[in-house]
Design a protein around this nucleic acid. Structure first.
Lengths: 338, 338
DNA sequence: TTGAAAGCGCTAACAG
DNA sequence: CTGTTAGCGCTTTCAA
């Protein structure tokens, strides 16, 4: 298929009456070329529909001009703003974007099986726990540019990280519930095992409780999994413990969806009987019934910033060690506000 | 950065005591290699963490093993299931996935500016109107493998298309409104200019009206733009025309969100005063207030199928001319059902 | 079953 | 300011 002879740099050079080096110079804007020559070359390029072949460039220059994004899975409401931010960042900076999900490819033992790495990109964006620590370490020591999104680096490795202010966001959220809504028995649903976002949100939650003299009660904590379905399960678990609860901090908004559904099924009213709050402010949050009180995380901005850090790392060898983006409290009816 | 000497095929060959041709053969499973030799090579490969460099392979083989996806923009609820399907498809078939948005890069005149095409992928998936017809035509005549997702080919070009049964889905939806809910004055909000999905949905709408002896009234049709904000505007326009309306077919679910909001603002009740129905069944649809009656479009399946068709086209030179996926009527409260 | 060798199309010294 | 040339790392004939 498609063996229509594509124009090569040599065709352009010949037609323009210059050497291929000159053509290369005008394409890459490297080195001096007289305006007249440049114009002639450019016109031949568009005449011939010429586009330099990525593989040949990559081989010769040892740069792919491509950034890889590793995810576990494209799911939930979180990804649309994130991908949007990443795509915007790569496009702004002139990079191609390669996307790969590690979910459902468990037979990844040798690095040869990692479809994204040194062999096809100039740097990698790693989302949360989509890549094992071992591979991160390997890439780090191979000096391959890496930026972590919504997770921190393994101990001792200086890998730039970009994430949101989870702890202070959660702190303000719980402060609000306690101070303005009079809650004292607040449940917390944690994210999936090892999710750092969840860890910091829990820290904010605990800090707020402590600051208000409310003892931490482990019976109020259970797994929410950052997942709608797990959120439902969590509600049933909490209720079966027959402890008093006046609010549920669902860990994130996706979980809140399931939590609200499950509470309604149990015949409880939100927020009259139990308040519910989330984290992220996904697009859907304001359309839930009742609209969800949450913490707005700048998902798209964080994603775009991560690309910028990665490109800086690729180009200059340095990047900010940690980029923490501010969050904002969004009050809606699910917490009892009017 | 990252100038840690990566292992090359030559390193593997030397260490294994064979020629690079043999290494290439075991990697690509092309040609006969004795079991013993193969085993030795494989062990050296994992020992050295060797992974073949995509650029070199691409240059030598004239295949990139990459599929390009062209979108206008990553926005709305539609994209998560679509990207999920595309990613799944490419991964299943062993291709890399390159994503590019054409939105906000209007200065695309010469093909050299199209960041996705013959020069860096083996084939392209084109979503709706993300690529101008001129470029589609150029690629087609250059014999470059192309599959169109949710749009049809320019006249005369045999380019495979994958989409959903928009017309019959809309037909069943409107039949239902008329027959079961007694609606006669049904407004239709069209998608953005040139959106084919919208065109076929409108055909289904008109066909249903005609079948029930209801005259088509142009005052009941206006732009919805497949967009929440435009949906709000559309409602205000319709209401200002002071024609009677008992239902609004919003064109798609994203638009329905804005429509429902706007109706509420106008003091109208949904569905008591006006029923609202959408198309797609995005995840959010069942969480709207009231939950949205809509037509479920198999977005993820269509996306995955498109990848399969494209890979078949790349490998064999042929693919199905048209893949039409069935849709399903989803009844919820926004149309007055209980 | 294996090896030698010729490129693939381009970039990047190095000359001039 | 422009041209010559040596590879980049791999696949793929063609021979052996």
């Amino acid at each position: 298929m498609s063996d229509y002879a594509r124009a090569t740099i040599a065709d352009v050079a010949e037609r323009a009456g210059v050497s291929i080096a000159t053509v290369s110079r005008v394409i890459n804007k490297t080195g001096q070329v007289s305006a007249a020559t440049a114009a002639r070359v450019e016109s031949v390029i568009s005449e011939l529909n010429y586009a330099p072949q990525a593989a040949a460039r990559g081989l010769a220059s040892r740069r792919t001009n491509t950034i890889g994004l590793i995810l576990r899975e494209i799911t939930g409401e979180f990804f649309q703003p994130m991908l949007r931010g990443i795509e915007a960042g790569t496009r702004e900076l002139g990079y191609d974007l390669l996307i790969h999900c590690t979910h459902r490819s468990p037979e990844v033992q040798s690095p040869a099986n990692y479809p994204l790495s040194e062999h096809n990109s100039d740097g990698l964006l790693v989302f949360t726990d989509s890549l094992d620590e071992a591979e991160i370490i390997r890439l780090y020591y191979a000096q391959f540019p890496l930026v972590l999104l919504h997770r921190s680096a393994p101990p001792g490795l200086h890998i730039p990280c970009v994430t949101c202010e989870n702890k202070s966001g959660a702190r303000r959220l719980i402060d609000y519930l306690i101070e303005q809504r009079g809650c004292r028995r607040i449940a917390f649903l944690s994210g999936p095992d090892g999710a750092e976002d969840s860890y910091w949100r829990e820290m904010g939650y605990r800090e707020s409780l402590a600051a208000h003299g409310i003892p931490f009660d482990p019976r109020l904590v259970t797994l929410g999994g950052f997942d709608q379905h797990q959120g439902r399960i969590a509600v049933h678990q909490l209720l079966s413990r027959s402890v008093q609860i006046d609010a549920i901090f669902a860990g994130d908004d996706d979980t809140s969806i399931g939590v609200i559904d499950a509470l309604k099924e149990e015949g409880l009213r939100v927020p009259e009987d139990i308040a519910v709050v989330g984290f992220d402010d996904i697009p859907l949050a304001r359309y839930l019934t009742p609209p969800l009180t949450t913490v707005r995380a700048p998902i798209e901005t964080a994603a775009r910033e991560a690309v910028h850090q990665l490109v800086r790392l690729i180009r200059t060898g340095e990047a900010d060690r940690l980029t923490l983006l501010p969050t904002e409290l969004i009050i809606r009816r699910s917490c009892g506000a009017t």
